[in-house]
């Protein structure tokens, strides 16, 4: 599908206060989830109770914004009721769409709530016309959140071959390029983002001061060590620094963040309908600043002006202070 309408800016919210901040800062839509295993950001103290969700949706609608509810983990075999209940609750709260990846959740929505928009989560890793065609035909999904593995040219080719909206990440943390299939956290902690909604669960994380250095550990495994004054990070295995082959380095992935702020026009021309900002774990200050910057950039792009220079503005908010356009610009090809 080739998008001609105004692109939608989809922004994260981990708490009701952050939802209000995102809406106030100019989000067209906010995505968020419930405080349980159905949500891929299931961190303690984060997320929404059903009452908070209903209130948040009322607030967003009152300000002309939409709320997309992420029920985007994979249901436990033999215990799918929590996922069905979450979907029913989201609909009862008047959600504008449900974001899901699990076939059971998608089927439940398609069978029981056909009037509510269904978005295919990035966790489904649907990146081919055949895969997307299946989800469209089987569950009538209205939008697909694309995995962060495609170049802009590949997105354009994909959009010309499908009849459904597409949404692309433009800012925030990057996972290793295996959307929905990463089990690294499980190996160390027994819990993963896809099944439990939590990568590097905080109960398995420790920061130990020893001598002059701070050591970040995950379930007892040393993930990184920081000298005094050097920036620290949250210990995920994919961004750990390890010794291999006699060298110390980031074996899986450098701790850099995605920033496709300079590619908004290109993404629009490639047929993208919505731009997504990652970061439901981040606070109000982060969300407000990033949303405001992207609001200006998207509005400028829609008016045919050059993209606002936002790389410098947002560098301080990026993990590791370093940014990349990720797979969107594959110069090596």
């Amino acid at each position: 599908m080739t998008a001609q309408q105004r692109m939608e800016l989809v922004c994260p919210a981990g708490t009701p206060a952050t939802l209000r901040a995102a809406v106030t800062a100019g989000a067209d839509a906010v995505y968020c989830g419930f405080s349980d295993d159905t949500n891929a950001r299931n961190f303690p103290g984060l997320n929404f109770s059903p009452r908070e969700m209903a209130e948040g949706i009322r607030f967003a609608h009152g300000h002309g914004s939409k709320v997309l509810v992420a029920i985007n983990t994979f249901a436990r075999a033999g215990d799918t009721d929590p996922w069905r209940r979450a979907a029913d609750t989201a609909v009862a709260c008047d959600a504008d769409a449900v974001i899901a990846a699990d076939i059971a959740v998608l089927d439940h929505m398609a069978q029981n709530h056909p009037k509510t928009r269904l978005h295919l989560s990035v966790q489904a890793a649907a990146a081919t016309p055949e895969a997307i065609g299946f989800y469209l035909e089987a569950f009538a999904v209205r939008r697909v959140v694309l995995p962060r593995v495609l170049s802009v040219q590949e997105i354009k080719a994909l959009n010309s071959a499908i009849a459904v909206e597409t949404e692309a990440f433009v800012f925030g943390g990057l996972c290793v390029m295996m959307e929905g299939r990463c089990h690294l956290s499980s190996y160390a902690t027994g819990r993963s983002p896809n099944l439990n909604g939590v990568c590097s669960p905080p109960e398995a994380v420790s920061y130990d001061e020893s001598g002059q250095a701070t050591t970040a550990r995950l379930a007892g495994f040393t993930i990184d060590r920081y000298d005094p004054g050097s920036p620290a990070g949250y210990p995920t295995l994919c961004k750990g620094r390890f010794t291999a082959g006699g060298k110390i380095g980031y074996l899986f992935e450098d701790p850099v963040s995605l920033n496709a702020g300079t590619m908004i026009v290109a993404l629009k021309e490639a047929g993208i309908t919505a731009l997504k900002i990652e970061g439901r774990q981040r606070g109000k200050g982060y969300v407000s600043e990033v949303v405001r910057a992207f609001r200006r950039a998207v509005d400028a792009a829609e008016l045919g002006r050059d993209s606002v220079e936002i790389e410098g503005i947002l560098a301080a908010l990026s993990e590791g202070g370093r940014q990349t356009t990720g797979a969107y610009r594959k110069t090596w090809r």
């Binding site: 981990g14 708490t15 009701p16 206060a17 952050t18 961190f43 303690p44 103290g45 984060l46 669960p201 905080p202 109960e203 994380v205 420790s206 920061y207 130990d208 001061e209 606070g283 109000k284």
Partner: peptide
């Protein structure tokens, strides 16, 4: 921060909201 990271993350999220 030292000690139970989970307790800190929870406190941080509660204060944020």
């Amino acid at each position: 921060v030292t000690g139970k990271t989970e307790a800190v993350v929870t406190l941080r999220n509660a204060i944020e909201d």
